[in-house]
């Protein structure tokens, strides 16, 4: 629970937070595409460096960056091991890395693959860490607006998502409370064997379920009382406007994508 603040968005008013959410989502998609299509070692490394630079611009903690990358170690290692097994051109110069042997192309492919994984994860965490979830959801709602004509409940989905987000900390607290309450009257079941602990699961889930339904009912009445009736006639809470900044970022990411095709 204490880690929540470490993993999620915290308002710092940096440059990246000011981007229009629609543009941020679009640009991220373009950037992800260019990462995936890019097979040039130098360009891909440059893209990773760019992401790390943005991390710095966003004033995100370096510890979080290291933590993010370290958590991917297992993917890096397995990718590299996998690549060492595929020696495509037997005539190639061989590179020995400890117990592993690579063809030159194999080594490059391996590094490219690792960079790809790292790049996508960094990109995703940059977006999540520099955008309030509500703004992200609203951006998504605006982008998906055309699908409303296809009777896709875009607004409802986004509303559900934001409410889930709003109630997450409350539910986490509730789980803690119910767990302790059942332990307090459980005759020490939590200290005994697995079967005994297993018996404690239902007594925790059932109250959580009942309480969540009660909360949902109360919230529904409260929302309706406050004149909520779907997205009909609602004014948007925030007005989003594209600025020059957003267009230049878009232009930059387009160039980035083009570059991938040229190289």
């Amino acid at each position: 629970m204490a880690n929540n603040s470490f993993l999620l968005f915290q308002k710092q008013n940096t440059w990246l937070e000011q981007w229009d959410p629609r543009m941020k989502i679009t640009v991220s998609l373009i950037f992800a595409a260019s990462l995936l299509l890019n097979h040039n070692l130098i360009l891909k490394t440059a893209q990773i460096v760019l992401l790390i630079a943005l991390w710095w611009v966003a004033k995100l903690s370096w510890r979080a960056l290291v933590f993010t990358l370290l958590s991917l170690t297992i993917f890096f290692i397995s990718t590299m091991i996998y690549r060492s097994m595929l020696i495509t051109n037997p005539g190639d110069t061989l590179i020995h890395l400890g117990a592993l042997t690579y063809s030159q192309q194999g080594a490059i492919d391996g590094i490219l693959m690792c960079e790809q994984i790292a790049g996508i994860v960094l990109l995703l965490s940059l977006v999540v860490r520099t955008t309030s979830p509500i703004i992200l959801a609203e951006g998504l709602e605006m982008i998906l607006k055309p699908f409303k004509k296809l009777r896709l409940p875009v607004h409802e989905m986004v509303m559900m998502f934001t409410i889930a987000l709003r109630f997450l900390p409350i539910l986490i607290e509730e789980v803690d409370k119910i767990r302790k309450a059942q332990m307090a009257r459980g005759g020490g079941f939590h200290r005994k064997g697995i079967s005994s602990r297993f018996r404690g699961v239902f007594p925790m889930l059932m109250p959580l379920f009942v309480l969540s339904i009660l909360r949902a009912k109360e919230l529904a009445v409260a929302m309706e009382s406050r004149c909520y009736q779907g997205d009909e006639g609602r004014t948007p809470i925030r007005l989003y406007q594209m600025h020059r900044r957003d267009y230049s970022v878009l232009a930059f990411s387009a160039i980035n994508l083009l570059l991938v095709f040229i190289v």
Binding site: I178, A181, Q182, R185, G186, G187, G188, F189, K192, S196, R199, F202, P203, M206, P207, V210, L211
Partner: peptide, 21 residues
Amino acid sequence: PEHQLFSTTVFDDIAFGLQSA
């Protein structure tokens, strides 16, 4: 504390803590 009740009968709910003994 009534929010922590979970059983189908009052008896089972009260006896919950005695089970592990």
